[in-house]
């Protein structure tokens, strides 16, 4: 047992020396100035992030109208369209849609995203048709009455 403790003591000394070296030579802060905020890295928001659900449908439709399947110049727009489709479930959930109205939109967007992934976000004719249908579905859902009115009661509950 004494041997074990002796070994541990020797290892502890070696470890302490190593630790001191790491601490003394350790990494340097990139900035010597004091931070004004503890969290300087605010969430980045993409330029084409939609302001609400109708805006998502509007942005998607406008890009669909501006692009075609054989247009090599539209790579950036096609990427943005894929982004919009993948964001639609979140944007729809952050609207006044009821759960029953949200489910078909979520499923349609997920299905379309899945279709786009293997092709590296290349929009086939079938994908474009599905995207137009998604826009129609969103616009139809938006015309329904508000499902989750925010009341003073719900604010305090």
């Amino acid at each position: 047992m004494n041997n074990i403790y002796m070994q541990f003591r020797n290892d502890s000394i070696r470890f302490s020396i190593l630790l001191s070296l790491v601490v003394v030579l350790g990494c340097r802060d990139e900035s010597a100035t004091a931070k004004q905020s503890h969290f300087e890295h605010d969430h980045g928001v993409a330029a084409h992030w939609p302001s609400d659900l109708p805006d998502a449908a509007k942005q998607l439709r406008s890009r669909l109208d501006r692009t075609s399947t054989d247009d090599p110049e539209s790579d950036e727009l096609q990427e943005e369209m894929a982004d919009l489709v993948s964001w639609i479930p979140e944007v729809a959930a952050d609207s006044s849609l009821s759960e029953n109205d949200w489910i078909p939109i979520n499923e349609a967007a997920k299905s379309l995203s899945k279709k786009l992934q293997p092709s590296g976000h290349q929009w086939t004719q079938s994908a474009r048709e599905q995207a137009y249908q998604l826009c129609d579905l969103i616009e139809k859902s938006e015309s329904k009455p508000t499902a989750h009115p925010v009341t003073l009661e719900s604010k305090s509950s």
């Binding site: 503890h38 605010d42 479930p89 979140e90 949200w102 979520n106």
Partner: peptide, 26 residues
């Protein structure tokens, strides 16, 4: 946990973090 519940949970946590950032601003 239904997808809608999961998504609402994601949203509330995202917004709580945004609030945290705002409260940390000096």
């Amino acid at each position: 946990v239904r997808p809608y519940q999961r998504m609402q949970g994601y949203l509330i946590r995202k917004k709580l973090e945004l609030l945290e950032h705002e409260l940390e601003h000096d």
